[in-house]
Amino acid sequence: MKKGGCPLHVMRTVMLIIAIVLWATSPLAAAERLKLTTLHWPPYVEQTGEGPNTDTVRSTFAKAGMDVQVQVFPWNRAIKLAADDPQWVGVYPEYYSAEIDAERGGERCLFSKSFGNSPVGFLTPKGSSFDWATHDDLKSFVIGVVRGYVNEAKLDEMIAEGEIAAELAEDDTQNILKIAARRAEAIVIDKHVFEYLKAKDPGVAFVADSLEFHEKLLVNHGLYVCFENSAAGRSARDLFNQNLEKIPEAVATD
C-alpha cells in the first residue's frame, strides 16, 4: 500500500458498510415492511384492500425495493390509525386539504404527490329543481355528505359554519339511498364511485334510474397518500414521490 493511499477493494468495502449502517438507522428500516391503512372505496379500493389505487401504491414502493402491507378499516379509524399509531405509516386514497397538511400549518399528515384523480359532484333525483353556478346557490338546498369525508374546501367550510344544511351518511351507499328517499336534495359523490355502485350494489341499482349526476363538477380531486407527520412518514413520502415519477400511467393532477 502506498503511503496515504487505500486499495480500491478496501474503499468499496468501507462504502458498503457505511451504506448498510445508514439504511439500518433510517426511520424506514425499523419495520420489515411499510404498513398503510385504507378504506373500502370501490372502484379505487376493494374490501380486500386490492384495487387500482393499491396497485399503484404497491408498484411505486416496489420500485424502491419496499414491500407494502395494506388493511381496510372504516374511514375514520383508518385516518386515526395512520395519524396516531406508529405501526401504520400512512393512509390512502386521501383528498388534499391544507387544514391537515403538516407542511402548510396543519398537523395530521404529509401529502405525497398525486397518483390519481376523483371527479366529485352532485347526485340528484331526476327532474329535481337542483341547480347551481356558485357556492351561494347551494344555501337553498339540503346536501347529503358522508361523515368524515373531505368533499371540497369551500363547501365543507360553509357546512361547518352552518351556511349550508347537511344530511350525514356513514358511507356512499347510504348517501345514495338517502337521496333516492328524498332525505336531501343533492348528495356529494365521486362520479366513478356512483357508476361502480350502480353496477355492483343491488340496492343502488334499484334506485339508480331515478337519479342523475349533475353536469357541473364540484371539484376534480387529486388522490394522495397521507403519510404520518413523523420522520418515518417523511422518509416514506419522499421514497414514494421519487419513484412515482417513474410510473408513466400515474395521474398527477391536483
Rank of each mutant, 00 (worst) to 15 (best):
Gln242Lys: 14
Gly222Tyr: 06
Met1Trp: 07
Leu155Phe: 07
Leu244Ser: 03
Glu170Arg: 10
Ser59Ala: 11
Trp23Glu: 09
Ala153Gly: 10
Ser114Met: 02
Val251Arg: 14
Gly65Ile: 01
Thr124Tyr: 06
Glu46Gln: 11
Glu99Asp: 14
Glu94Thr: 10
Tyr95Ile: 13
Ser210Ile: 05
Leu244Gly: 02
Asn241His: 06
Pro43Tyr: 08
Ser59Asp: 15
Phe141Cys: 02
Ser59Lys: 14
Leu211Ser: 03
Leu110Pro: 01
Thr173Leu: 08
Asn220Thr: 09
Pro42Thr: 00
Ala208Val: 01
Asp101Gln: 05
Gly105Asn: 06
Val193Asn: 00
Arg12Leu: 15
Arg147Ser: 12
Gly233Trp: 09
Gly106Ile: 04
Glu215Thr: 12
Ala199Glu: 13
Gln69Thr: 10
Phe122Asn: 00
Gly65Val: 00
Phe122Leu: 02
Ile17Gln: 10
Lys154Trp: 07
Ala199Met: 06
Lys200Val: 05
Phe73Gly: 09
Leu168Phe: 11
Glu215Ile: 04
Ile18Tyr: 07
Tyr224Thr: 11
Ile20Ala: 15
Phe206Glu: 15
Thr253Ile: 14
Ser230Ile: 05
Tyr44Trp: 13
Ile17Ala: 15
Asp101Gly: 04
Ala186Cys: 04
Ser26Ile: 04
Asn220Met: 11
Ala102Lys: 08
Leu155Ala: 03
Asp55Ser: 11
Ala236Tyr: 01
His221Leu: 07
Glu157Asn: 13
Met11Leu: 13
Ala78Glu: 05
Asn175Trp: 01
Glu94Met: 14
Leu138Ala: 01
Gln69Lys: 12
Asp55Phe: 08
Leu22Met: 15
Lys80Met: 14
Asp172Tyr: 04
His221Gly: 02
Ile189Phe: 00
Ala184Thr: 00
Phe130Ile: 01
Thr253Cys: 10
Glu107Ser: 09
Ser112Met: 03
Leu211Ala: 04
Arg77Ser: 12
Thr124Ile: 15
Phe111Lys: 02
